[in-house]
């Protein structure tokens, strides 16, 4: 029965990891940009949820949409004004640029909000869920369900709308998309905005479960990396599979080795998967 409980914990965690990673994966896959800012976007989303609850009394579940919209605006502007200018430069340049922006944002948050860990304690928690012998906190399950809902929503947006098809077209072939009349710089900005919006939404949900601090941004970024590497890049189902895989790996790793090893395990998994897949996961050597 212990294994069932651990597996359930892993799945709940995994749903949230998928939500953390899906926006990061979208930006990486479509723009070929590693958005180091992603972790800080998540933390920013958490703070916005925290203040919305404490100051306005807005329940986090209701805060998801406004927070996502706010981060969309931040992301759209970041790409449109800054990242687009070096989008064609070598990998090192875009990576370094988002790193610099992350230092600015994260440091500003530390100054503005302090590095102290804060908790968002709901006055009326959702109680506990019993599924046979498996016990799960209701807030966590609800957060996971919303995370999956958001992830699914992004998937529908990419599949079902004109805008989404344009994003996918840019991912497939940037030049061809441009020739077919897609405004590529604008789609870049939309994509980055969507990535940031997903980060913000994930941040709102994470605030219900983890203490909030700017110091967490690196941790979240690491999770996003690992999920992408595990599940494959730039696709929503990939992020889902990778997120759940990581959630399960961490839960069972914590069971067998002790919870203090969870982070080490996920980084080891990251390096091992990278090392064992020759030519990286993109493996673009196939065409001659």
């Amino acid at each position: 029965m212990l294994y069932l409980q651990v597996a359930a914990n892993g799945l709940v965690l995994g749903g949230l990891y998928a939500c953390i990673a899906v926006g990061f994966s979208l930006v990486w896959g479509v723009l070929n940009v590693i958005n180091i800012l992603h972790g800080s976007f998540i933390v920013l989303g958490s703070y916005l949820a925290l203040f919305a609850y404490q100051v306005l009394g807005l329940h986090p579940f209701l805060a998801i949409l406004p927070v996502a919209a706010a981060l969309y605006a931040v992301g759209h502007a970041t790409q449109g004004l800054l990242v687009n200018r070096v989008i064609a430069a070598p990998v090192l340049m875009t990576l370094t640029l988002t790193f610099g922006l992350d230092l600015m944002l994260n440091n500003t948050m530390i100054v503005a909000f302090t590095a102290d860990y804060r908790r968002l304690n709901l006055e009326t928690p959702l109680g506990v869920l019993f599924l046979g012998d498996v016990v799960l906190p209701g807030d966590r399950v609800a957060a996971m369900a919303l995370a999956l809902l958001l992830t699914g929503g992004l998937w529908l947006l990419l599949r079902g709308t004109r805008l989404g098809r344009a994003v996918v077209a840019v991912r497939m072939d940037r030049d061809a998309a441009a020739l077919m009349g897609v405004n590529v710089p604008r789609i870049n900005a939309v994509t980055f905005g969507l990535g940031a919006a997903m980060a913000g939404a994930a941040g709102v949900l994470l605030a219900l479960i983890f203490p909030v601090s700017p110091l967490n941004s690196g941790l979240f970024l690491g999770k996003a990396f690992t999920v992408c590497v595990l599940g494959g890049l730039g696709s929503v189902p990939g992020a889902l599979v990778g997120g759940i895989a990581l959630g399960l790996i961490e839960s069972f790793g914590a069971l067998w080795l002790g919870p203090e090893w969870a982070i080490t395990i996920s980084f080891m998994v990251l390096i091992a998967v990278l090392a064992l897949r020759p030519d990286g996961l993109l493996g673009r050597r196939g065409y001659a």
């Binding site: 990576l95 080490t264 980084f267 990251l270 990278l274 990286g280």
Partner: peptide, 28 residues
């Protein structure tokens, strides 16, 4: 030998993770 076959972002990430793993190990 294990990570230099990776290119671009993948190499960058793998190299970044090295320091994280060592830091975690040094803490543990």
């Amino acid at each position: 030998g294990a990570i230099l076959h990776l290119r671009g972002h993948y190499f960058a990430i793998a190299s970044l993770a090295l320091a994280e793993v060592l830091r975690e190990l040094a803490t543990k």
